[in-house]
Design a protein around this nucleic acid. Structure first.
Length: 460
RNA sequence: GGCCACGUGGCGGAGUGGUUACGCGCCGGUCUGCAAAACCGUUUACUCGGGUUCGAGUCCCGACGUGGCCUCCA
């Protein structure tokens, strides 16, 4: 069985061959910790968690290294800190914001059934690596100092006439197009409009570190170099898979490639570039101004994390997804059924019918179709396959109990009403038994009569 | 304006040249005092217009629609 992955750089599905099968390496861009993560942020977390699990299944748990960074130095964090903790010194306020938000992020993604990555590096703990990359780039003639900034020059990279990749290869843009399409005013200290920042001076009170490249004033890193540095530290100069949202292809990933390849004289940074598609909410772009900004935290108040997870995986990771209530309800019903059927059975082996679509560029919708097939034929295989995909973390009773708890229904009341109804039915007082059934329905309780008696559950 | 994706039945959503996707819903059946739940069965599609081909949802061209990105940062 071989794994095939779609690679954004070559624009084709290719057989995955690890550089070292004993150490399969994947990097995914993680959150900037300044606010609650929204449901769009959950998509890469879930998609690459499935890939992580699949790689562990194929190569062994000890042989896969997954790195997802936490960006904890950023203007948005500074703004947030100043707003939320106006009485505190900025650096202290920033620490509060990043600690609080990072903690919340972990709570959210744990609930989504995502395994913790092997390493979760923080940008602020890798300033030394960033400085080193910047020094190398300046020494190599790929970057220059201007007004206490360090800027990377894509023009210099493309003029280097070596084995380096062409700047723009990943996002399929030429430098000419970028210049023509630029809508933003170009800072005066840039030599070319396409140059981007590696290091910039900090404003008074902002987080700052000693600057590289002989700059006297303290400064802080640009965003792109953070990921190059963290990937380098934990995965090396060249590794297997780099993932993230499709919005990151340009400029973020294009710039990462440029920095890493020029700093280490590599032809490539990662062998496979994977990007998940965007997410809309109820047919509209998610934005704070439209008022449809949905956080993972809010959704988790109404739905188990696994429902969000299933709902996300119903669509192929590369396609756009429209996040709707209706779809969530459907996902919840499906999981209810799977929990009843498979949560308490002895897991067998993950079914080939599920693995094969996953191996074909993570075709989770087709894998889910196969799960429906197993539901009727092989519940042990269903149980194992669902676990492989990160489901069934609870027992059937816990799953049902969670619904009861959320509904606020007292099981004792329900049991009492059911026995009253059973008595009414026994004396053929159907008017009374139907009244009780209606009363239970109004409480959100569904009655299930069978030859062995009456059971009940919370309706979705 | 430039570059790049996507457009399948009531809904979600696979499928890249010739066979049933699958799930939800609807409808029908079994069961039931009647229902519900459960189980069984049925139904509907490929944005539009050209082209290639014996044959296209699947390849090519164009149009329309939706979305992403366009460099100090999601």
């Amino acid at each position: 069985m071989e794994l095939r992955l779609y690679d954004t750089l070559s624009r084709e599905k290719r057989t995955f061959v690890p550089l070292d099968a004993n150490n399969v390496r994947m990097y995914v861009c993680g959150p900037t910790v300044y606010d609650f993560a929204h449901i769009g942020n959950a998509r890469p977390v879930i998609v690459f968690d499935v890939l992580f699990r699949l790689l562990r299944h194929l190569y062994g748990e000890a042989h896969v290294k997954y790195v997802r960074n936490i960006t904890d130095v950023d203007d948005k964090i500074n703004d947030r800190a100043a707003r939320d903790f106006p009485g505190l010194p900025l650096n202290e306020a920033i620490r509060k914001v990043t600690e609080q938000t990072g903690k919340q992020f972990h709570a959210d993604v744990d609930a989504l059934g995502a395994l913790r990555p092997s390493v979760e590096p923080r940008a602020t703990e890798h300033i030394g690596e960033m400085r080193e990359i910047i020094e190398r780039l300046v020494a190599g003639g790929f970057a220059y100092v201007a007004e206490d900034h360090v800027l990377f020059s894509p023009q210099a990279m493309n003029a280097a006439n070596s084995t380096l990749p062409r700047y723009g290869a990943l996002s399929k843009r030429s430098l000419d197009e970028m210049i023509a399409g630029a809508r933003v005013d170009v800072a005066p200290y840039k030599r070319d409009a396409t140059d981007f920042v590696l290091w910039k001076p900090s404003k008074p009170g902002e987080p700052s570190w000693p600057s590289p490249a002989g700059i006297a004033a303290p400064g802080r890193p640009g965003w792109h170099v953070e990921c190059s540095a963290m990937a380098w530290k934990h995965l090396g100069e060249y590794f297997d898979i780099h993932g993230g949202g499709i919005d990151l292809v340009f400029p973020h990933h294009e710039n990462e490639v440029a920095q890493t390849c020029c700093a280490f004289h590599q032809e490539r940074m990662a062998n496979y570039w994977m990007h998940n598609g965007f997410l809309q909410v109820e047919g509209e772009k998610m934005s704070k101004s439209l008022g449809n900004f949905v956080t993972i935290h809010e959704l988790l108040a109404d739905w188990p994390g696994e429902v969000l997870r299933l709902n996300m995986l119903k669509t192929h990771y590369h396609s756009p997804i429209d996040w709707t209530m209706k779809s969530l309800e459907e996902s919840a019903r499906t999981l209810d059924d799977w929990y009843r059927a498979a949560a308490d059975v002895e897991p067998g082996k993950p079914a080939a019918s599920v693995l094969e679509p996953l191996l074909d560029d993570l075709n989770t919708p087709l894998a889910i179709a196969a799960l429906h097939g197993l539901r009727g034929s092989d519940v042990n295989g269903l149980a194992a396959s669902l676990r492989l995909l990160g489901f069934l973390s609870e027992s059937a009773a816990q799953w049902e109990g969670r619904k009861q708890q959320a509904s606020g229904v007292d099981a004792k009341d329900v049991e009492r009403l059911i026995s009253e109804r059973t008595a009414a039915r026994a004396r053929k007082d159907f008017k009374e038994s139907d009244r009780i059934r209606d009363e239970l329905a109004a409480m959100g309780v569904t009655i299930k009569d069978s030859k062995d008696g009456t059971t009940w559950e919370i309706a979705r």
